[in-house]
Design a protein around this nucleic acid. Structure first.
Length: 266
DNA sequence: ATGGCTATTTGGAATAGA
């Protein structure tokens, strides 16, 4: 199975590129993040026309996650059990956002995840980000404890650069989100739950990135971040035979600011 | 070997992204 994750930054404005990429990349399951639309606005037919089933959750113009699969799409779950909600208005009860969707594709439990950005270290969104990660880690640990043979893939935009080698200029990110120790600790904690990040071993060069800001010529200057990754349960980690980042897809007019990340599962 | 932000929203400044 070829499993990919891609923050598409609007599925509607990017639909031609996404469908073209799917058709030539031989990907069986694509987890998308930042679809930026409600369910009713999702271009389902573009995917079903080329043989993919789609599960999507989108509640507004923000966030939105989906899974497209041509190898089955069963037991769709919107959000994980203890997924926290967020509201910037303290008068309004926090509501769960469209940041996680799970489905079983050919025996693999795939989760398409869009981890909260955090905005600023002093922003409530940052606290929310850490709570969100801790809750996901706890739930994922419970899934593996309940079934040690479970084949689980947690893929998506983690909005964390796990090491300084994953940031084009670490000094520039001092005091910013994505590189703080608390975020890195929250990411590392998935290792304690038995999960392994499986793309780095196949793309080990320092300064290998998956995201480049649209501004300041960041892409041609090779100034990016590695924030899109795939974590797998022990049983699935043993099946991973390769991974790659499709940098080509960041090029040209109308590209997402993230590149697709592909995982080969034998 | 690419390109100086981009996408969304009851419609055009504001918000979010990272």
């Amino acid at each position: 199975m070829r499993l990919a994750t891609w923050n598409v930054n609007s599925v509607r404005s990017r639909q031609d590129r996404i469908v073209d990429w799917l058709q030539r990349s031989d990907v069986d399951v694509l987890a998308m993040q930042e679809t930026k639309c409600k369910d009713a606005q999702f271009p389902y037919e573009r995917f079903t026309d080329i043989g993919y089933e789609v599960a999507h959750v989108g509640l507004s113009q923000w966030n939105g996650v989906a899974i497209a699969s041509r190898v089955g799409l069963d037991d769709v779950q919107v959000g994980f059990e203890d997924q926290p909600g967020f509201s910037k208005d303290p008068e309004i009860d926090p509501a769960q956002e469209a940041r996680a969707i799970g489905a079983t594709c050919d025996g693999v439990r795939v989760w398409s995840l869009y981890v909260p950005n955090g905005r600023e270290l002093a922003d409530p969104h940052y606290t929310y980000k850490l709570e969100w990660l801790a809750a996901l880690k706890a739930d994922a640990q419970a899934w593996v404890t309940a079934d040690p043979q479970a084949q689980i893939a947690l893929v998506g935009d983690w909005n964390i650069a796990p090491t300084d080698d994953d940031v084009w200029d670490p000094a520039l990110f001092e005091g910013k989100t994505h590189t703080s120790q608390a975020e890195r600790d929250a990411f590392t904690a998935f290792g304690d739950a038995g999960f392994t990040e499986v793309t780095r071993q196949f793309t080990p060069e320092p300064r290998t990135y998956t995201y480049w800001d649209y501004t300041q010529l960041r892409f041609p200057k090779k100034q990016g971040l590695r924030i899109d990754m795939a974590l797998t349960s022990p049983a699935l980690a043993a099946r991973v035979t390769g991974a790659s980042i499709d940098r080509e897809e960041r090029k040209g007019k109308g590209a997402s600011d993230h590149a697709p990340v592909i995982v080969e599962i034998g």
